[in-house]
Nucleic acid binder design. Structure first.
Length: 566
RNA sequence: GCGCCUGUAGCUCAGUGGAUAGAGCGUUCGACUCCGACUCGAAAGGUCGCAGGUUCAACUCCUGUCAGGCGCACCA
């Protein structure tokens, strides 16, 4: 691919003593404003070695470097060497590449033969899927698609919360007050109300807690009645989650919950013991991490039963053995940061050098009205309700603006869901979010529908143009500020994808898409595309096609659909 | 108490040690006989939490401090 920066650093290296190409490449930066040029070399650092003031260095450099075909102008400005690229050549190479590579523009095969395990979404069985679970789902899904784009083989795992004492409670509640038909009809909603009723009744009747413990113990022992009910609860929940994942367009390669590891933890505990890491403390078995300035990692409760960390360590080892991952990524709330630090450290202490391939990808907390979400207090917004609202709002807009649109329902779903996902992936993931209906259902400005609309508009122009041989474009006709600015933004796509993956930060793509959409809309507004002049029309169509390609790829990377008509 | 994270425009947020700190929303003003106006342009709006320090250069790095969030032993 054409990289103007490396061309420029190659050229400059011939005129700068003691600086090689790579050093220059790293020093080159993009000026704050396009009138200053396309690339700039700050000369302040060179001042010491060359024993000359930066202003002088810049000036002599600007004077000595000859103009080449790909550079239009070199100007020294207060210590910077500002470089203006030849617009036609830049656009020519860029468009040729995008038209040629199409939807694989920006992708690579750097991940060939490498497995990435991504643990995401992971809701708790028999609990409603609320907006708190959305973030893990949507961030994990975006990372999955981004890694895949770079040629990695991804294994998306839904690590369901499908085990624990709450199942004892649920079994008791169902046996006492449950009604099979009701559960079949209302699914998780009914399970939740059984769960809530259990807590209400347990306040006046503490014996219920004992019963729940009894039934969970039965479950762990493999009692058939208990197991059958548990399986049923899991199936009901999965059925309901499947609908949500379907609406969101999210897929998993594996549903492998906590229960899967029940019979796999004992060998790991023994291994910890054998490696001398397990010590007794206050009745429990722990791995001491004081030398790492961390609280201890609890492995076994005083009654001998296992904990969260036990299961996660076991799961990590299992995944390494099964998938031999290049990276294993956990997408969970920031509140679990310490937990993962401890788990990773224990794995390091066990002598596994792949501990460095484990990555926790934390995200900020969702609150509503200043309070944290909580199923028990009813402080939740069900994802189903949110998606329904977003979709019906989009449907209403389509009905008003474009009632003849074919496939209206599907487009409404794509854009409504798109708005929700986009807004979740817009800020840096570490930021806390205060949920607001107004904000999430506002489709103006930097939103998913804005980008989707822009993409559809590009599609519309191309459709209207009919059959045009885009390769016959003439880049010298695309030298206006709007066209050049759009081209430069499009050229950034590959490096943005790379950066987003380096930082495991999908929001880099999300915000980049807004830039592309904005640049395209400005170009579209200032210049007519479907003009009489055939060559000019072809050239602008080629640029439109390039923008469409990047918008579509970017939208798909963050898990949005890119409908051709909206 | 200790640890981690976050403090940038009225609000929501960007911002690789470099030039005049940028978007969107909201406000005000403007642009449709036109390829889709869910669009585009402009104005107003900032002691980058505060105080030191490092540097030719700090929103960015370091130290301290204040405010908020999240953790810190038998929940996950």
């Amino acid at each position: 691919m054409y990289d103007a920066k490396s061309e420029v650093s190659k050229l400059l290296s011939k005129y700068t003593e003691g600086l090689n190409e790579q050093q220059l490449y790293d020093m080159l930066e993009v000026p704050p404003s396009p009138e200053m040029g396309d690339l700039a070399l700050p000369c302040f650092k060179l001042s010491k070695h060359l024993r000359k003031p930066p202003v002088q260095i810049a000036e002599s450099l600007a004077a000595s470097v000859p103009k080449t075909d790909f550079i239009d102008k070199i100007k020294a400005v207060s210590g910077y060497v500002n470089i203006f690229l030849n617009r036609a050549i830049f656009i020519d190479k860029l468009l040729a590449e995008i038209l040629d590579t199409g939807k694989v523009f920006g992708s690579s095969d750097e991940g060939r033969g490498k497995n990435i395990v991504i643990d995401f979404s992971s809701p708790n069985i028999a609990k409603p899927f609320h907006i708190g679970h959305l973030r893990s789902t949507v961030i994990g899904n975006a990372l999955y698609r981004m890694f895949k784009f770079m040629g990695y083989n991804c294994i998306g795992i839904n690590y369901l919360g499908d085990w624990g004492t709450q199942f004892g409670k649920l079994i008791v509640a169902y046996k006492k007050w449950g009604d099979e038909d009701k559960v079949r009809k209302d699914l998780v909603k009914e399970l939740v109300s059984l769960y809530v009723r259990f807590h209400e009744e347990a306040e006046s009747d503490p014996a219920l807690e004992d019963e729940a413990r009894y039934w969970f113990a039965q479950l762990e022992k493999g009692n058939e009645e208990a197991l059958a009910l548990w399986r049923w609860f899991v199936d009901i929940s999965l059925e309901e989650y499947a609908k949500i994942y379907d609406v969101l367009g999210v897929k998993f390669d594996l549903f492998q919950g906590e229960a899967f590891f029940n019979d796999k933890m004992e060998p790991v505990v023994n291994e910890l013991k054998a490696k001398g890491l397990l010590v007794e403390s206050e009745g429990a078995m722990i791995v001491d991490l004081e030398d790492e300035d961390m609280p201890p990692c609890l492995i076994l409760k005083s009654d001998g039963s296992t904990l969260y960390a036990t299961r996660d360590i076991t799961a990590a080892i299992y995944r390494k053995n099964t998938f031999d991952f290049y990276k294993c990524i956990y997408v969970t709330g920031v509140s679990q940061s310490l937990h993962f630090k401890q788990v990773f450290k224990v794995i390091e202490k066990m002598g596994y050098d792949w501990h460095k391939d484990l990555h926790h990808v934390p995200f900020g907390t969702v609150s509503i009205g200043g309070e944290k979400l909580a199923t028990r207090t009813g402080k939740v917004i069900l994802l189903e309700d949110l998606l329904t609202q977003a979709i019906s709002k989009t449907a209403a807009i389509i009905e008003e603006k474009n009632p003849d649109l074919p496939d209206k329902e599907e487009v409404a779903r794509q854009m409504g869901v798109g708005a929700v996902i986009f807004s979740d992936l817009f800020s840096n993931r570490i930021k806390d979010v205060a949920f607001s209906w107004d904000e999430i259902l506002n489709f103006d400005g930097e939103t998913g529908p804005y980008v989707q609309y822009t993409h559809a508009r590009a599609c519309s122009v191309l459709r209207k143009a009919g059959d045009v041989k885009l390769n016959a474009f003439d880049s010298s006709l695309l030298s206006s500020d709007e066209e050049y600015s759009l081209a430069k933004t499009l050229a950034d796509f590959p490096s943005k994808v790379k950066q987003a993956l380096d930082e495991l930060e999908p929001s880099i793509i999300t915000r980049y898409l807004v830039d592309v959409a904005h640049d395209f809309n400005r170009f579209y507004h200032v210049h007519s595309i479907l003009v009489e002049d055939e060559v000019l029309k072809t050239s602008r169509l080629a640029l439109t096609q390039a923008a469409k390609t990047v918008l579509r790829s970017g939208l798909e990377l963050i898990g949005l659909s890119a409908p051709e008509r909206v």
